[in-house]
Design a protein around this nucleic acid. Sequence first.
DNA 1: GGTGGAAGCGCC
DNA 2: AAAGGGCGCTTCCACC
Length: 431
Amino acid sequence: MLTIDELKIVNFLLDPDAPKELPQKEASAQLEKLGLTKVFLEIEKPLMPVLEEMSNNGILIDQKRLVVLKKKNEGKIKELEKEIYKLAGGEFNLNSPKQMSEVLFKKLGLKARGAPTKSGLQSTKASKLEELKGEHEIIDLILDYREVFKINSTYLEPLSHFKGRVHTTFLQTGAATGRLSSVNPNLQNIPDSVKEVFLAEEGFKLVSLDYSQIELRILAVLSEDENLIEAFKNDLDIHRLTASQVLGVSLEKVTEEERRFAKTLNFGVIYGMGATAFARNTGLKRVEAEKFIENYFKGFPKIKKFQEGLVEEARKNGYIRNLNGRIRWLKFINNENGFLRAGAEREAINAPIQGLAADIMKLALIAVHHECKKDHDVRMLLTIHDELLLEIKEERVEKIAKIIKQTMENVYPMGVKLKVGMSIGDRWSDL
DNA sequence: GGTGGAAGCGCC
DNA sequence: AAAGGGCGCTTCCACC
Protein backbone atom coordinates (compact mmCIF):
# COMPACT_ATOMS: atom_id res chain seq x y z
CA MET A 1 0.00 0.00 0.00
CA LEU A 2 1.16 3.45 -0.89
CA THR A 3 0.53 6.57 1.12
CA ILE A 4 -0.77 9.65 -0.66
CA ASP A 5 2.72 11.17 -0.77
CA GLU A 6 4.22 7.95 -2.08
CA LEU A 7 1.57 7.71 -4.75
CA LYS A 8 2.43 11.23 -5.88
CA ILE A 9 6.06 10.26 -6.27
CA VAL A 10 5.21 7.07 -8.14
CA ASN A 11 3.04 9.02 -10.53
CA PHE A 12 5.83 11.49 -10.99
CA LEU A 13 8.32 8.73 -11.78
CA LEU A 14 5.91 7.34 -14.35
CA ASP A 15 5.43 10.68 -16.06
CA PRO A 16 6.00 14.15 -14.63
CA ASP A 17 3.82 15.83 -17.26
CA ALA A 18 0.92 13.42 -17.07
CA PRO A 19 -2.23 15.50 -16.70
CA LYS A 20 -3.80 13.19 -14.18
CA GLU A 21 -2.50 10.73 -11.65
CA LEU A 22 -3.03 7.01 -11.91
CA PRO A 23 -4.77 5.25 -9.03
CA GLN A 24 -2.84 3.08 -6.58
CA LYS A 25 -3.12 -0.26 -8.32
CA GLU A 26 -2.45 0.92 -11.83
CA ALA A 27 0.46 3.07 -10.67
CA SER A 28 2.19 0.16 -8.97
CA ALA A 29 1.71 -2.07 -11.98
CA GLN A 30 3.08 0.60 -14.33
CA LEU A 31 6.04 1.18 -12.03
CA GLU A 32 6.97 -2.47 -12.28
CA LYS A 33 6.32 -2.65 -15.99
CA LEU A 34 8.56 0.33 -16.72
CA GLY A 35 11.34 -0.99 -14.49
CA LEU A 36 11.07 1.88 -12.03
CA THR A 37 10.38 -0.13 -8.89
CA LYS A 38 14.01 -0.04 -7.88
CA VAL A 39 14.29 3.72 -8.21
CA PHE A 40 11.22 4.06 -6.04
CA LEU A 41 12.09 1.49 -3.37
CA GLU A 42 15.81 2.17 -3.11
CA ILE A 43 15.94 5.90 -3.66
CA GLU A 44 12.73 7.88 -3.48
CA LYS A 45 10.96 6.09 -0.66
CA PRO A 46 13.85 5.97 1.81
CA LEU A 47 14.60 9.58 0.96
CA MET A 48 11.24 10.82 2.21
CA PRO A 49 11.98 10.78 5.95
CA VAL A 50 15.39 12.36 5.31
CA LEU A 51 13.87 15.33 3.55
CA GLU A 52 11.28 15.65 6.25
CA GLU A 53 13.96 15.79 8.88
CA MET A 54 16.01 18.37 7.01
CA SER A 55 12.95 20.51 6.64
CA ASN A 56 12.15 20.17 10.33
CA ASN A 57 15.70 21.06 11.30
CA GLY A 58 15.66 24.30 9.36
CA ILE A 59 18.55 26.71 9.14
CA LEU A 60 19.16 29.62 11.48
CA ILE A 61 19.10 33.19 10.21
CA ASP A 62 20.73 36.15 11.82
CA GLN A 63 17.88 38.65 11.83
CA LYS A 64 20.06 41.50 13.08
CA ARG A 65 22.49 41.07 10.24
CA LEU A 66 19.61 40.71 7.83
CA VAL A 67 18.10 44.02 8.90
CA VAL A 68 21.41 45.80 8.47
CA LEU A 69 21.89 44.34 5.02
CA LYS A 70 18.34 45.16 4.04
CA LYS A 71 18.63 48.79 5.14
CA LYS A 72 21.85 49.17 3.22
CA ASN A 73 20.26 47.72 0.10
CA GLU A 74 17.17 49.85 0.37
CA GLY A 75 19.39 52.93 0.56
CA LYS A 76 21.15 51.88 -2.61
CA ILE A 77 17.87 51.26 -4.38
CA LYS A 78 16.62 54.77 -3.56
CA GLU A 79 19.89 56.29 -4.69
CA LEU A 80 19.94 54.40 -7.97
CA GLU A 81 16.28 55.23 -8.64
CA LYS A 82 17.03 58.93 -8.32
CA GLU A 83 20.04 58.85 -10.60
CA ILE A 84 18.24 56.79 -13.22
CA TYR A 85 15.24 59.12 -13.24
CA LYS A 86 17.59 62.07 -13.67
CA LEU A 87 19.37 60.49 -16.62
CA ALA A 88 16.10 59.33 -18.15
CA GLY A 89 14.62 62.78 -17.83
CA GLY A 90 11.66 61.62 -15.77
CA GLU A 91 10.20 58.95 -13.53
CA PHE A 92 8.91 55.62 -14.73
CA ASN A 93 8.41 52.14 -13.36
CA LEU A 94 11.90 50.68 -13.33
CA ASN A 95 10.51 47.20 -12.85
CA SER A 96 8.38 47.28 -15.96
CA PRO A 97 10.25 45.78 -18.90
CA LYS A 98 7.80 47.55 -21.17
CA GLN A 99 8.46 51.01 -19.77
CA MET A 100 12.17 50.29 -19.55
CA SER A 101 12.24 49.31 -23.17
CA GLU A 102 10.39 52.45 -24.19
CA VAL A 103 12.70 54.73 -22.23
CA LEU A 104 15.88 53.16 -23.55
CA PHE A 105 14.99 52.57 -27.15
CA LYS A 106 12.55 55.39 -27.84
CA LYS A 107 13.06 58.23 -25.41
CA LEU A 108 16.85 57.92 -25.17
CA GLY A 109 17.16 56.63 -28.71
CA LEU A 110 19.56 53.79 -27.99
CA LYS A 111 19.70 51.42 -30.89
CA ALA A 112 18.55 47.94 -30.11
CA ARG A 113 20.41 44.96 -31.48
CA GLY A 114 18.64 41.78 -32.32
CA ALA A 115 15.01 40.97 -32.85
CA PRO A 116 12.20 42.03 -30.53
CA THR A 117 10.62 39.57 -28.10
CA LYS A 118 7.22 37.92 -28.56
CA SER A 119 5.45 40.95 -27.21
CA GLY A 120 7.06 43.14 -29.87
CA LEU A 121 9.32 44.93 -27.39
CA GLN A 122 13.07 45.14 -27.44
CA SER A 123 14.49 42.99 -24.69
CA THR A 124 16.13 44.80 -21.78
CA LYS A 125 17.62 41.71 -20.18
CA ALA A 126 21.04 42.02 -18.61
CA SER A 127 22.91 40.29 -21.44
CA LYS A 128 21.44 42.78 -23.94
CA LEU A 129 22.19 45.76 -21.73
CA GLU A 130 25.79 44.58 -21.43
CA GLU A 131 26.15 45.19 -25.14
CA LEU A 132 24.97 48.79 -24.73
CA LYS A 133 27.26 49.61 -21.83
CA GLY A 134 29.48 52.15 -23.56
CA GLU A 135 26.60 53.99 -25.20
CA HIS A 136 24.89 55.60 -22.24
CA GLU A 137 25.79 55.98 -18.59
CA ILE A 138 22.28 54.94 -17.58
CA ILE A 139 22.99 51.33 -18.54
CA ASP A 140 25.35 50.58 -15.66
CA LEU A 141 22.93 52.14 -13.23
CA ILE A 142 20.06 50.01 -14.49
CA LEU A 143 22.13 46.87 -14.18
CA ASP A 144 23.09 47.82 -10.63
CA TYR A 145 19.49 48.68 -9.82
CA ARG A 146 18.21 45.35 -11.10
CA GLU A 147 20.76 43.46 -9.04
CA VAL A 148 20.08 45.28 -5.79
CA PHE A 149 16.33 45.25 -6.25
CA LYS A 150 16.35 41.52 -6.92
CA ILE A 151 18.37 40.83 -3.81
CA ASN A 152 15.94 42.82 -1.75
CA SER A 153 12.61 41.72 -3.14
CA THR A 154 13.39 38.04 -3.62
CA TYR A 155 15.67 37.34 -0.68
CA LEU A 156 16.14 39.94 2.05
CA GLU A 157 12.53 41.08 2.30
CA PRO A 158 10.92 37.61 2.42
CA LEU A 159 13.60 36.23 4.73
CA SER A 160 13.06 39.10 7.14
CA HIS A 161 9.64 37.65 7.99
CA PHE A 162 11.07 34.44 9.41
CA LYS A 163 11.79 34.12 13.09
CA GLY A 164 14.64 31.88 14.17
CA ARG A 165 15.05 28.97 11.83
CA VAL A 166 13.87 28.83 8.23
CA HIS A 167 12.22 25.60 7.12
CA THR A 168 12.15 25.00 3.40
CA THR A 169 10.18 22.22 1.74
CA PHE A 170 12.03 19.91 -0.59
CA LEU A 171 10.00 18.64 -3.50
CA GLN A 172 10.77 15.17 -4.69
CA THR A 173 8.58 15.78 -7.68
CA GLY A 174 10.12 19.11 -8.50
CA ALA A 175 12.42 18.40 -11.42
CA ALA A 176 11.97 16.12 -14.41
CA THR A 177 15.56 14.89 -14.24
CA GLY A 178 15.21 13.62 -10.68
CA ARG A 179 16.73 16.58 -8.96
CA LEU A 180 15.11 17.96 -5.85
CA SER A 181 13.68 21.44 -5.75
CA SER A 182 13.10 23.70 -2.78
CA VAL A 183 10.13 25.97 -2.06
CA ASN A 184 8.67 28.33 0.54
CA PRO A 185 11.30 29.58 0.58
CA ASN A 186 13.61 28.28 -2.10
CA LEU A 187 16.93 27.87 -0.33
CA GLN A 188 18.66 26.43 -3.37
CA ASN A 189 19.20 29.77 -5.07
CA ILE A 190 20.48 31.98 -2.28
CA PRO A 191 22.96 34.50 -3.75
CA ASP A 192 26.48 34.64 -2.33
CA SER A 193 25.81 38.14 -1.04
CA VAL A 194 22.95 36.87 1.12
CA LYS A 195 24.65 33.77 2.52
CA GLU A 196 26.15 35.77 5.39
CA VAL A 197 22.76 35.89 7.11
CA PHE A 198 22.64 32.09 7.48
CA LEU A 199 24.65 30.80 10.41
CA ALA A 200 25.23 27.98 12.85
CA GLU A 201 23.72 27.92 16.29
CA GLU A 202 26.03 28.82 19.17
CA GLY A 203 28.32 25.87 19.86
CA PHE A 204 27.81 24.45 16.36
CA LYS A 205 29.50 24.90 13.00
CA LEU A 206 28.13 24.89 9.49
CA VAL A 207 29.67 22.29 7.24
CA SER A 208 29.47 22.19 3.49
CA LEU A 209 30.29 19.01 1.63
CA ASP A 210 30.11 19.25 -2.12
CA TYR A 211 30.75 16.81 -4.92
CA SER A 212 33.56 18.12 -7.06
CA GLN A 213 32.82 18.10 -10.81
CA ILE A 214 30.27 15.34 -10.34
CA GLU A 215 28.61 15.80 -13.72
CA LEU A 216 31.89 15.75 -15.64
CA ARG A 217 32.96 12.66 -13.73
CA ILE A 218 29.69 11.02 -14.67
CA LEU A 219 30.22 12.04 -18.28
CA ALA A 220 33.66 10.40 -18.15
CA VAL A 221 32.21 7.18 -16.78
CA LEU A 222 29.19 6.97 -19.06
CA SER A 223 31.02 7.92 -22.23
CA GLU A 224 34.01 5.75 -21.32
CA ASP A 225 36.26 8.42 -22.78
CA GLU A 226 39.81 7.40 -21.89
CA ASN A 227 41.19 10.94 -21.85
CA LEU A 228 38.60 12.18 -19.44
CA ILE A 229 38.80 9.10 -17.23
CA GLU A 230 42.56 9.31 -17.12
CA ALA A 231 42.38 12.99 -16.26
CA PHE A 232 40.16 12.35 -13.27
CA LYS A 233 42.25 9.38 -12.15
CA ASN A 234 45.28 11.64 -12.06
CA ASP A 235 43.32 14.43 -10.44
CA LEU A 236 44.24 16.85 -13.21
CA ASP A 237 42.77 20.29 -13.67
CA ILE A 238 40.03 19.18 -16.05
CA HIS A 239 39.43 22.54 -17.71
CA ARG A 240 43.14 23.00 -18.31
CA LEU A 241 43.33 19.54 -19.80
CA THR A 242 40.41 20.28 -22.10
CA ALA A 243 42.07 23.46 -23.29
CA SER A 244 45.32 21.66 -23.92
CA GLN A 245 43.54 18.88 -25.79
CA VAL A 246 41.43 21.19 -27.92
CA LEU A 247 44.20 23.66 -28.74
CA GLY A 248 46.90 21.07 -29.13
CA VAL A 249 49.27 22.71 -26.67
CA SER A 250 50.94 21.32 -23.56
CA LEU A 251 49.22 21.68 -20.18
CA GLU A 252 51.67 24.31 -18.96
CA LYS A 253 51.17 26.49 -22.03
CA VAL A 254 47.42 26.92 -21.45
CA THR A 255 46.57 30.53 -20.57
CA GLU A 256 43.93 31.58 -18.06
CA GLU A 257 41.70 32.80 -20.88
CA GLU A 258 41.99 29.51 -22.71
CA ARG A 259 41.16 27.68 -19.54
CA ARG A 260 38.01 29.78 -19.16
CA PHE A 261 36.92 28.90 -22.68
CA ALA A 262 37.49 25.26 -21.96
CA LYS A 263 35.48 25.49 -18.76
CA THR A 264 32.54 27.00 -20.62
CA LEU A 265 32.92 24.28 -23.19
CA ASN A 266 32.99 21.50 -20.62
CA PHE A 267 29.78 22.68 -19.06
CA GLY A 268 28.29 23.40 -22.45
CA VAL A 269 28.90 19.86 -23.58
CA ILE A 270 26.92 18.53 -20.64
CA TYR A 271 24.03 20.77 -21.67
CA GLY A 272 24.20 20.00 -25.38
CA MET A 273 25.30 23.53 -26.21
CA GLY A 274 25.75 24.56 -29.84
CA ALA A 275 28.23 26.90 -31.48
CA THR A 276 25.95 29.95 -31.24
CA ALA A 277 25.61 29.77 -27.51
CA PHE A 278 29.28 29.02 -27.08
CA ALA A 279 30.24 32.01 -29.22
CA ARG A 280 27.86 34.26 -27.31
CA ASN A 281 29.30 33.10 -24.01
CA THR A 282 32.93 33.48 -24.84
CA GLY A 283 32.84 36.40 -27.23
CA LEU A 284 34.43 34.23 -29.89
CA LYS A 285 33.33 34.57 -33.47
CA ARG A 286 30.89 31.94 -34.55
CA VAL A 287 33.32 30.22 -36.87
CA GLU A 288 35.95 30.17 -34.13
CA ALA A 289 33.41 28.69 -31.75
CA GLU A 290 32.57 25.99 -34.26
CA LYS A 291 36.23 25.15 -34.65
CA PHE A 292 36.64 24.96 -30.90
CA ILE A 293 33.72 22.57 -30.55
CA GLU A 294 34.87 20.47 -33.47
CA ASN A 295 38.30 20.16 -31.90
CA TYR A 296 36.71 19.29 -28.61
CA PHE A 297 34.95 16.29 -30.04
CA LYS A 298 38.11 15.31 -31.86
CA GLY A 299 39.95 15.32 -28.56
CA PHE A 300 37.18 13.39 -26.81
CA PRO A 301 35.74 11.20 -29.56
CA LYS A 302 33.84 8.87 -27.25
CA ILE A 303 31.77 11.75 -25.95
CA LYS A 304 30.37 12.47 -29.38
CA LYS A 305 29.51 8.80 -29.81
CA PHE A 306 27.95 8.67 -26.38
CA GLN A 307 25.74 11.65 -27.08
CA GLU A 308 24.67 10.34 -30.45
CA GLY A 309 23.77 7.06 -28.82
CA LEU A 310 21.58 8.86 -26.29
CA VAL A 311 19.70 10.73 -28.97
CA GLU A 312 19.21 7.58 -30.96
CA GLU A 313 17.89 5.69 -27.97
CA ALA A 314 15.56 8.54 -27.15
CA ARG A 315 14.19 8.59 -30.70
CA LYS A 316 13.53 4.89 -30.57
CA ASN A 317 11.84 4.81 -27.18
CA GLY A 318 10.45 8.29 -26.69
CA TYR A 319 12.36 8.52 -23.42
CA ILE A 320 15.87 8.30 -22.05
CA ARG A 321 16.96 6.40 -18.94
CA ASN A 322 19.78 7.11 -16.57
CA LEU A 323 22.05 4.40 -15.16
CA ASN A 324 19.56 3.57 -12.42
CA GLY A 325 16.70 3.21 -14.85
CA ARG A 326 15.10 6.55 -14.07
CA ILE A 327 13.06 7.72 -17.04
CA ARG A 328 12.92 11.13 -18.65
CA TRP A 329 10.14 11.33 -21.21
CA LEU A 330 10.93 13.30 -24.34
CA LYS A 331 7.67 14.00 -26.05
CA PHE A 332 9.20 16.12 -28.80
CA ILE A 333 12.14 13.92 -29.68
CA ASN A 334 10.55 12.95 -33.00
CA ASN A 335 8.58 16.15 -33.55
CA GLU A 336 8.67 17.61 -37.03
CA ASN A 337 9.31 21.06 -35.54
CA GLY A 338 13.12 21.32 -35.59
CA PHE A 339 13.25 23.73 -32.69
CA LEU A 340 11.26 21.47 -30.38
CA ARG A 341 13.16 18.43 -31.57
CA ALA A 342 16.54 20.05 -30.96
CA GLY A 343 15.41 20.97 -27.48
CA ALA A 344 14.47 17.37 -26.77
CA GLU A 345 17.83 16.23 -28.07
CA ARG A 346 19.60 18.52 -25.64
CA GLU A 347 17.43 17.13 -22.86
CA ALA A 348 18.35 13.60 -23.94
CA ILE A 349 22.01 14.55 -23.70
CA ASN A 350 21.71 16.20 -20.32
CA ALA A 351 19.14 14.14 -18.43
CA PRO A 352 21.18 10.94 -17.90
CA ILE A 353 24.00 13.01 -16.43
CA GLN A 354 22.03 15.43 -14.34
CA GLY A 355 19.72 12.61 -13.30
CA LEU A 356 22.49 10.33 -12.14
CA ALA A 357 24.13 13.14 -10.21
CA ALA A 358 20.78 13.71 -8.52
CA ASP A 359 20.45 10.02 -7.66
CA ILE A 360 23.93 9.93 -6.18
CA MET A 361 23.15 12.87 -3.94
CA LYS A 362 19.87 11.26 -2.90
CA LEU A 363 21.65 8.03 -2.01
CA ALA A 364 24.21 10.05 -0.10
CA LEU A 365 21.49 11.82 1.85
CA ILE A 366 19.98 8.48 2.79
CA ALA A 367 23.35 7.05 3.81
CA VAL A 368 24.38 10.10 5.82
CA HIS A 369 21.02 10.19 7.52
CA HIS A 370 21.29 6.51 8.39
CA GLU A 371 24.67 7.19 9.92
CA CYS A 372 23.78 10.30 11.86
CA LYS A 373 20.11 10.22 12.73
CA LYS A 374 20.68 9.13 16.31
CA ASP A 375 23.48 11.61 16.86
CA HIS A 376 22.11 14.83 18.31
CA ASP A 377 25.32 16.65 17.49
CA VAL A 378 24.63 16.39 13.76
CA ARG A 379 21.86 18.09 11.83
CA MET A 380 21.35 17.79 8.13
CA LEU A 381 20.07 21.11 6.85
CA LEU A 382 20.01 21.59 3.11
CA THR A 383 20.99 20.06 -0.17
CA ILE A 384 21.80 22.30 -3.08
CA HIS A 385 22.08 19.68 -5.85
CA ASP A 386 25.72 18.74 -5.40
CA GLU A 387 26.20 20.23 -1.95
CA LEU A 388 25.11 19.02 1.47
CA LEU A 389 24.92 21.57 4.26
CA LEU A 390 25.04 20.39 7.86
CA GLU A 391 25.24 21.85 11.33
CA ILE A 392 27.55 19.95 13.67
CA LYS A 393 28.59 20.38 17.30
CA GLU A 394 31.83 22.29 17.41
CA GLU A 395 33.84 19.80 19.48
CA ARG A 396 33.22 16.97 17.07
CA VAL A 397 32.87 18.79 13.79
CA GLU A 398 36.19 17.87 12.17
CA LYS A 399 35.86 14.20 12.88
CA ILE A 400 32.23 13.86 11.90
CA ALA A 401 32.60 15.95 8.75
CA LYS A 402 35.39 13.69 7.58
CA ILE A 403 33.30 10.59 8.13
CA ILE A 404 30.39 12.05 6.18
CA LYS A 405 32.77 13.07 3.41
CA GLN A 406 33.90 9.46 3.15
CA THR A 407 30.32 8.26 3.08
CA MET A 408 29.50 10.61 0.24
CA GLU A 409 32.56 9.61 -1.73
CA ASN A 410 31.84 5.91 -1.40
CA VAL A 411 28.08 5.84 -1.75
CA TYR A 412 28.11 5.10 -5.49
CA PRO A 413 31.33 3.47 -6.67
CA MET A 414 32.11 4.05 -10.34
CA GLY A 415 35.05 3.82 -12.72
CA VAL A 416 35.96 7.34 -11.72
CA LYS A 417 36.13 8.10 -8.01
CA LEU A 418 33.86 10.75 -6.61
CA LYS A 419 35.61 13.56 -4.81
CA VAL A 420 33.99 15.65 -2.10
CA GLY A 421 35.15 19.08 -1.01
CA MET A 422 34.73 20.06 2.62
CA SER A 423 34.52 23.38 4.33
CA ILE A 424 33.63 24.45 7.87
CA GLY A 425 32.60 27.81 9.28
CA ASP A 426 30.14 29.86 11.30
CA ARG A 427 28.28 31.38 8.38
CA TRP A 428 27.23 30.04 5.01
CA SER A 429 29.29 32.81 3.42
CA ASP A 430 32.44 31.36 5.07
CA LEU A 431 32.06 28.08 3.25
C1' DG B 1 -10.38 40.26 -6.28
C1' DG B 2 -7.72 36.38 -8.38
C1' DT B 3 -5.02 34.09 -12.26
C1' DG B 4 -1.63 33.12 -15.61
C1' DG B 5 1.84 34.35 -19.05
C1' DA B 6 6.10 37.06 -19.86
C1' DA B 7 10.18 38.93 -18.58
C1' DG B 8 13.77 38.81 -15.79
C1' DC B 9 17.21 36.69 -12.67
C1' DG B 10 19.02 34.08 -8.45
C1' DC B 11 21.26 29.18 -7.88
C1' DC B 12 23.47 24.26 -9.45
C1' DA C 1 13.42 33.35 -35.71
C1' DA C 2 16.09 30.90 -32.36
C1' DA C 3 19.01 27.45 -31.29
C1' DG C 4 22.81 25.42 -23.14
C1' DG C 5 20.31 21.48 -19.12
C1' DG C 6 17.46 21.91 -14.44
C1' DC C 7 14.68 24.82 -11.05
C1' DG C 8 11.48 28.96 -8.00
C1' DC C 9 10.23 33.76 -7.04
C1' DT C 10 9.03 38.58 -8.04
C1' DT C 11 7.07 41.98 -10.79
C1' DC C 12 4.16 43.70 -14.34
C1' DC C 13 0.21 43.39 -16.99
C1' DA C 14 -3.75 41.70 -19.43
C1' DC C 15 -7.72 39.47 -18.43
C1' DC C 16 -11.89 37.55 -16.11
